[in-house]
Design a protein around this nucleic acid. Structure first.
Lengths: 338, 338
DNA sequence: GGACCCGTTGTTAACGTTCACAGTCTTCCC
DNA sequence: GGGAAGACTGTGAACGTTAACAACGGGTCC
């Protein structure tokens, strides 16, 4: 032993020795402390370079109690919405110098969210973003004694926690008003699963717009966001009389609806107008190209990190914020005047 | 100050005092060391429970030199393929008791990948999965003096690093052979960007199948995976004579192709047969439902974690593995006999 | 009955950083 | 020239865990 042992990675003390200073001075250089003579700084930097030194962030985290890591809890990141949101979060976090540790849940039940949060807290994250579009997740979040700053994305009206979300109600309203403005007597709705806050919001917006126009709201058809459920809803709608306008709660289901209509020979938009929600990249190339409501997932991700960092860096008692991102109407070819 | 200070989180020493043992015994209980009297263990567990103690993983990582965190580098996790792969990776990693820290790149250039790897290495990850479908990324990986176990997903024939991938060539072959078997004279191809290994593989499979059948390969049309690029390729194809079968390198572009054909009044599959690649959830509900090649992203994710963990836990010089996941043919309604 | 082993527990020293404090050496002012 | 302020640097002690080793007690084997 001795001569041929693998050289272990250099530590601060090695740099200090090389540069002829104390380890503390090295630390100061690394942390950009102002009171270091520039000649000393240069010598230290040179030593760092020569030795290929890299600071050990784990040791640093131990003493500072800050890991510069943020946790993200999300549900099925395979879906376009969550995937885009997480993407935006990750970009913003990294730009701010934070790592992102992610937990992707298969199903969101109470204990699943709870476990994920514990798991992340154990890891020592400085803050957590929960993409919690479901009521149950939002509730779990509400009664959380968790000692870590947290923000919820699409988290409903949770009282104790900051929330960033898209104005779903407004989106539902925009879609419905557009259809009414084209002269449709009423608007049918294919909704998302009842546990989802986003689904509820869109339903609410749809109802509000109909009420405002003095129209009756037909019974909404239930879907689960999947193209298949949209397809089934579409088959039902195709067999019903008097359906001339449909607001579908997401673009994937809208695709299913279009497919069902196409099979039954129902022409869109000649016989029925269809509006979707999300504006996924595919929507523009559906047959026909889908009129829809765009959600700015990127902005949601960015904003949630901003809010979270304010909470982390501002420390102490912070009023919990609520930030709402507006949706945008995107006109394409799946809607027409009666 | 003084009396009302926030009680700091309990540490091992607190538990030890409470249970009347040494902190080392607490550590042994936590690490399931066999030589602890069961009565002692019970007392310790009780103390842990009473105090609500949680082990500080940062301190643990400092001394063990293992963070139980894996890094994932990916490109645009907004796309279905990468998103699904990352999802599979995350599930498998968490099941194995590892955290997942993710870096999602906007563009994959050499320095971007390099930076991401450095960034993760700094954080002290135990291993890294690089979802590197692009040639440039794969190359960066090849000449990497990185001291951390690494596996590449879709990483080409990189010599020095383990690779897990779907057999793209076989996929291209399956698609093409299917079309030939329906009696088509030849098969056109809308390919992915030339820097992508997946695109190359599919082209190669397509060429191989045509060659084997003794047919000439027409010039492939270039796309960039987006529906729009497929749409443009579709318009070109629609204006050409003698096109009866098209293999499109992914489902999103296939959607664009279908849209273009539909606009030009070209009937699918009556006049032209179309095969896609990926089997995204939407494909089944395209008009017409898309015949395609399914990639098992989940298996890719799981396998990459398995390979990585073998490398981490097996320690030392390990032959670098190469694991190929077979694609599957999915018959739907976008192809027909001539 | 002594040597030895093994199960169980405790003691002390790392791990690599930052923090708190104590120097030392200028500089500048009266 | 004395003193104080401020710039710069070093020393020692945390942070909370695991690793290494020592110590103790009781059994087994000759």
């Amino acid at each position: 032993m001795g001569s041929t042992q693998a050289r272990r990675a250099p530590v601060m003390a090695d740099v200090a020795r090389e540069a002829g200073v104390s380890h503390q001075t090295v630390s100061r250089v690394l942390n950009e402390h102002p009171n270091v003579r520039s000649e000393t700084r240069a010598r230290v930097l040179e030593a760092i370079d020569k030795l290929g030194y890299r600071r050990n962030l784990v040791a640093r985290a131990l003493v500072t109690k800050h890991s510069r890591t943020l946790g993200v809890v999300s549900f099925d990141t395979t879906l376009y919405g969550p995937a885009s949101t997480v993407y935006g979060i990750e970009q913003a976090a990294r730009a701010a110098g934070y790592f992102v540790s992610i937990v992707s849940l298969k199903s969101i039940d109470r204990s699943g969210v709870r476990d994920a949060l514990d798991y992340l807290a154990d890891q020592g994250v400085d803050g957590i973003v929960v993409v919690a579009p479901q009521r149950s997740a939002a509730q779990t979040l509400a009664d959380l004694p968790l000692g870590v700053p947290t923000v919820a994305v699409e988290g409903g009206e949770a009282g104790d926690v900051s929330v960033v979300c898209v104005d779903q109600v407004e989106g539902g309203r925009l879609a419905t008003e557009h259809l009414l403005s084209l002269g449709h007597e009423t608007v049918w709705h294919v909704r998302g699963p009842s546990d989802w806050l986003e689904a509820e919001g869109r339903v609410a917006g749809w109802r509000a717009a109909l009420a405002q126009a003095g129209r009756d709201a037909p019974e909404p058809l239930a879907g689960d966001w999947s193209p298949r459920s949209g397809y089934e809803a579409g088959r039902s709608l195709a067999s019903m009389a008097g359906v001339s306008a449909v607001f579908v709660a997401n673009d994937q289901m809208a695709l299913g609806v279009l497919r069902a209509f196409s099979e039954r020979g129902v022409k869109v938009p000649d016989q029925v107008s269809v509006v979707g929600f999300d504006d996924i990249p595919e929507s523009e190339f559906f047959s026909p190209p889908l009129t829809t409501i765009r959600q700015d997932f990127d902005a949601v991700g960015r904003n949630s990190i901003e809010v979270l960092l304010r909470q982390i860096e501002g420390e102490g008692a912070q009023a919990c914020e609520r930030l709402v991102v507006p949706p945008a109407f995107v006109a394409r070819a799946s809607t027409a005047r009666v």
